[in-house]
């Protein structure tokens, strides 16, 4: 009987937390699309989530493009079709690598910091202080991050696309001696704007997932532990949950939308 009660209690706990997670998303989106917009906070968060991630995204973008080109060249040349290296690099970067790796990288870099920042605001009563002024913490803290995530991720993904293809070109053309015209000519033939947009749309949703999950974990810090320990727990959970959700959501988006 105790066992049944335990399972029941745990399940209700999990269900109510899932409910809370999605209620949080609804509020977060509501306050992101209704005025007044806190422009200065949005810009600050775009700088933090977006601008400050640029360097690391460019770095992993270059190497991702290079390694795809390296692997691809070996495989394609066995089939005698190394001419298709360009489209192969471009498509795998645009459709999958750029949005997913950018999402994971931003989760690790900015998502964790976001959770820690909001978690500290929670345990030091800064969120209570906002509420005590009769103001809404969703408008001041959460919405700017949602908007910043939604705007920053596609931009970062676009940069990843460009530098990744450049990395692929370096390896394919400069190292393996493929013709410049072949590499880019085939890209021109086989890669369309739709392929680019597929990754961009994905990245927009990843931006929302990252801000949503990170803010949620920070906002509810303290319900699972206190003080610095509570914050470090939330931060870990945020990174893990956001990463998992990005990968799962990526599968479903690819399977059903594209």
């Amino acid at each position: 009987m105790d066992f049944v009660r335990y399972i029941g209690g745990e399940s209700i706990g999990i269900l109510s937390r899932i409910g809370r997670l999605f209620t949080f998303l609804v509020y977060a989106i509501y306050f992101s699309i209704t005025p007044p917009f806190k422009i200065d906070r949005i810009l600050r968060q775009i700088r933090f989530i977006g601008a400050q991630s640029t360097l690391v995204v460019l770095l992993i973008g270059t190497f991702t493009g290079m390694v795809i080109s390296l692997q691809g060249y070996h495989t394609l040349s066995r089939l005698g079709s190394e001419a298709f290296l360009g489209p192969m690099v471009a498509l795998s970067i645009m459709k999958e690598m750029a949005p997913v790796l950018t999402g994971l990288m931003v989760t690790a870099r900015a998502g964790s910091a976001l959770t820690a920042e909001i978690g500290i605001m929670r345990i030091t009563n800064q969120i209570d202080a906002i509420e005590m002024m009769g103001l809404n913490p969703f408008r001041y803290l959460i919405a700017p991050n949602m908007i910043a995530g939604f705007i920053s991720l596609p931009l970062l993904t676009g940069m990843f696309d460009a530098i990744g293809i450049l990395g692929g070109y370096l390896v394919g053309v400069k190292i393996f001696g493929l013709e410049y015209a072949t590499f880019f000519g085939e890209i021109n033939t086989y890669v369309w704007v739709e392929h680019l947009m597929e990754g961009i749309y994905k990245s927009m949703s990843f931006g929302i997932i990252i801000s949503w999950v990170s803010c949620y974990m920070g906002y509810y810090t303290g319900s699972s532990g206190f003080g610095a320990e509570g914050v470090s727990k939330s931060t870990t959970s945020a990174v893990v949950l956001a990463a998992i959700m990005i990968l799962i959501w990526d599968y479903f988006m690819t399977a059903f939308l594209f």
């Binding site: 500290i120 605001m121 030091t124 009563n125 800064q126 209570d128 202080a129 005590m132």
Partner: peptide, 12 residues
């Protein structure tokens, strides 16, 4: 209502 929190709760 003005509320002074024990820890201050200044915006860092």
């Amino acid at each position: 209502i003005g509320f002074l929190f024990q820890g201050g709760a200044l915006f860092e």
